[in-house]
Write a protein that binds this DNA or RNA. Sequence first.
DNA 1: TATGTGAAGTTGTCTAGATATCTAATGTGG
DNA 2: CCACATTAGATATCTAGACAACTTCACATA
Lengths: 250, 250
Amino acid sequence: MNNQDESHEARYQEIERWLRDLVLRGAPGDALPSESDLAQRFGVSRMTARQAMQNLAQEGLISRRRGAGSYIAQRPLHRRESTLMSFTDDMRRRGVVASSQLLDARLRSATAGEIEALRLPEASRVVAISRIRLADGVPLAVEHVALPAECAGVLAEDLESGSLHEYLHRRGWTPALARSWIGARVATPAEVRMLDMTSRGALLVERRIIYDQDHRPFEHTETAYVAERYVIDATFAATGSGTLTAATPT
Amino acid sequence: MNNQDESHEARYQEIERWLRDLVLRGAPGDALPSESDLAQRFGVSRMTARQAMQNLAQEGLISRRRGAGSYIAQRPLHRRESTLMSFTDDMRRRGVVASSQLLDARLRSATAGEIEALRLPEASRVVAISRIRLADGVPLAVEHVALPAECAGVLAEDLESGSLHEYLHRRGWTPALARSWIGARVATPAEVRMLDMTSRGALLVERRIIYDQDHRPFEHTETAYVAERYVIDATFAATGSGTLTAATPT
DNA sequence: TATGTGAAGTTGTCTAGATATCTAATGTGG
DNA sequence: CCACATTAGATATCTAGACAACTTCACATA
């Protein structure tokens, strides 16, 4: 009836923590207690124990098979590390020195796409920054960033060697979520020249919108990577729910 | 959870479908029925209605705020993030009909890349399948699949309209994890012809290795999408819901 | 030996409630 | 007009069950 102790933590969260520890200590494939087991052990109803397990399955930490039981996932995914990375962080992580070559940085009218992406009023102005991105001195991509006009202060910053995201973070804009679209196109002659390409090769284009904690967009970026010099690496769990029996008819 | 058994759909799935339609027709920010509303409307208990909403919230389609209600998400997100999806599922989610045109299907010697990807002994043979993938009848991509020779039985299957993954699942190969590399290149003249392109445009190339529960690779696929007709969506939480990193080819 | 049957155990789905906690809107007093 | 208390309504958590669907394994049978 009561049960909402002085403790601020929900019962299922307590069970979750307990299971996390079990996963950490155990080996992939090890069997976990059943829902009924957990319910009895913690003195809760099965539905409560179930919620704990489902949350972990959601995270990919455990795998559940109807009729068979719940097991430690083969490759427990630890979702702590941020996957949203700035170019500078990206390069640093790979042991490459990132630098930039500023092409343009000014306040200008927003394009229709930027207005929609950043949810700005009609005919707004944005801070537009265009840079060539280099890795160990080799041109890797051309990047076009658009920020709300409030960020105009960034124009006074060093955009060739400094990190744009570090400045934004200092100003209170912290990335919480990003949406990306990844596509490709053939380089224009101007891009071939800027990026030191040998011919009109392919560009890997990433269009990205970054949101803050309140789900407000504050950065729109289009980065066109030289495909021969850059590959995106992605690892996907089979199912978001962690249930390995999910249907994948092809 | 997701069984192909269309005869019996769970109640919460029915509610989910109904809500999906609502989201599709409504505008971002629009309020959705409350859990109690739904429960009454569909004649189910509140917990069942709740499950439907939670699933959609998980997908990022709706946003729920305790005390306030549930709303259509600002940007209904399409779930490609951190989810391994078959071509057919992918297309269905995008609302188009998927089909295939078989180019080749036979047993042949594995390439060096396939031997490494599938961890095969030297000079192994693989089942190689090449198909044109169509969306609503329009060529979208050319796909080259390589499977271990044990899967030779798949050659007897209907690869134009049948389900490769369904067959593999029956044979005990269930996808648990996938690694992808996403790059780009310019189409060859042969590809321009096969894919009904107007010129030598860009292709978005995804190379993918699928692993089973025991982390053994069992499928190597290279899919080259016509960039003008296909874009990859990705959403990343800063808390980390999927891993997407980039690498420069050496 | 091979096969099939059945029981036990597990997760999936669902019920019909309950209390707790939070949000947003309303109303009231200064 | 503003600040604060109230309140209706929403989600969050939880209960104590139920039956269905599925997996596994022991056991009996051909």
